[in-house]
C-alpha cells in the first residue's frame, strides 16, 4: 500500500475513533461518576447542534458558537438535574423512564422552535491533500478535540477540588458525606458537566451531519455501546472502548461495506460483554 493511502486510512480510522470518544464522553461521565443512565443523551447532543446553528446565524464566529452551545446545553443539564434527576437518584428504572420521556419532550420542543426540517452548517476549514488523496481538515480537528476532551475530563476530575469531591462521592459516598462533601452539589455539577460534553459533541458534529430534531437517535446507540463496553472507568473505559470499536468499525467498513462495519462493531461488543460483563475497565476498579 502506498504511503498516501496509508495516511488517508489512518486519518479515517482516527476520525471514527474520535467521533466515538466525542459522542460518548458525556454519557460516560454521567454513567461512570453517578451511575445514572441518561437516555436523553442523544437529545442533549442534538441541542448542542441546534444551539450552534442559532449562534452562528446570530452572527457569532463558528468556534465561539460551538463553545456557547456546549455551555448552553450544560445549563440545560443543570436545570434538568434540579427539576428531574435529583429526585430519582438510586432508582435506575425510574431515571431511565424519566430521561426517556425527557428525550421525547426535547425533540418535540425543538420541532416547535426550529421546525421539523433538516438544517446544516457548512464544514469549516478546508481540504488537505496527501499524495493522491484529499481529506477534510475538519477531521483532523475532530481528532485533536477528542484528545483535548479526554484531557479536560482528566484535569477536571484529578486537578480540581470539585473533581476530587466528585470521585470521593462516587467511591465512598458515606465517608465522603462524613467528611463534609456536599453530594447534592457534586451530583448537580457532574450532571451539568456531562451535559456540557454532550452539547460539545453536538456542536462539533453540526458541520458534518444533518442538523435535525431526530439526529440524537443516529448517535445515541453507538454512544451507549461505547460506554457499556468501556465500563465504569470514565477515561480508561471510554478511550479503550472507542479505540477498539472504532478500529473494528473503520477497518471492516473500509475493507468491505459500512453495513458490515456496523455489524462487526456490534458483534465485537456482544462477544466482549459476554466475557467482560462489567466492561473493559470493569476489573481495574479505578474510577477514571
Amino acid at each position: 500500500m502506498q504511503m498516501d493511502a496509508l495516511i488517508n486510512l489512518a486519518v479515517s480510522l482516527l476520525t471514527t475513533v474520535s467521533i466515538l470518544v466525542i459522542i460518548s464522553i458525556g454519557l460516560a461521565v454521567v454513567f461512570g461518576m453517578m451511575g445514572v443512565i441518561n437516555l436523553a443523551h442523544g437529545e442533549f447532543l442534538m441541542l448542542g447542534a441546534f444551539f450552534t446553528l442559532s449562534g452562528y446565524r446570530a452572527g457569532l464566529n463558528i468556534w465561539l458558537a460551538m463553545i456557547v452551545a456546549a455551555l448552553g446545553v450544560g445549563l440545560v443539564g443543570l436545570l434538568v438535574e434540579r427539576l428531574l434527576i435529583q429526585f430519582l437518584y438510586g432508582r435506575l428504572a425510574a431515571t431511565m423512564l424519566a430521561t426517556w420521556g425527557l428525550s421525547l419532550i426535547l425533540v418535540q420542543v425543538v420541532v416547535l422552535i426550529y421546525g421539523p426540517s433538516t438544517q446544516g452548517l457548512r464544514t469549516p476549514l478546508g481540504t488537505m491533500r496527501v499524495g493522491d488523496y484529499s481529506m477534510s481538515q475538519y477531521n483532523l480537528l475532530l481528532i485533536a478535540v477528542a484528545v483535548a476532551l479526554l484531557g479536560l475530563v482528566f484535569v477536571v476530575f484529578t486537578r480540581t477540588k470539585y473533581g476530587t469531591k466528585a470521585r470521593a462521592a462516587t467511591q465512598l459516598p458515606h465517608m465522603a458525606a462524613a467528611v463534609g462533601v456536599n453530594a447534592k452539589m457534586t451530583n448537580m455539577l457532574t450532571f451539568a458537566f456531562g451535559a456540557t460534553l454532550a452539547g460539545a459533541a453536538g456542536a462539533l458534529l453540526a458541520p458534518v451531519a444533518g442538523v435535525l430534531p431526530g439526529m440524537g437517535q443516529a448517535y445515541v446507540g453507538r454512544a451507549f455501546m461505547t460506554v457499556v463496553v468501556g465500563g465504569p472507568g470514565v477515561l480508561t473505559g471510554t478511550a479503550s472502548s472507542a479505540a477498539l470499536l472504532g478500529t473494528v468499525d473503520s477497518v471492516v467498513s473500509n475493507a468491505f461495506t459500512s453495513f458490515l462495519g456496523t455489524a462487526a462493531l456490534l458483534l465485537v461488543a456482544i462477544v466482549l460483554l459476554r466475557f467482560l460483563p462489567t466492561g473493559i475497565s470493569g476489573r481495574s476498579g479505578r474510577q477514571l
Binding site: T16, V208, M215, A218, S250, N254, T257, G261
Partner: peptide
Amino acid sequence: FIPLESSEFGS
C-alpha cells in the same frame, strides 16, 4: 449501501 440512520460516510 448506507443505513438510513447513518450519517457517517468516512469509508
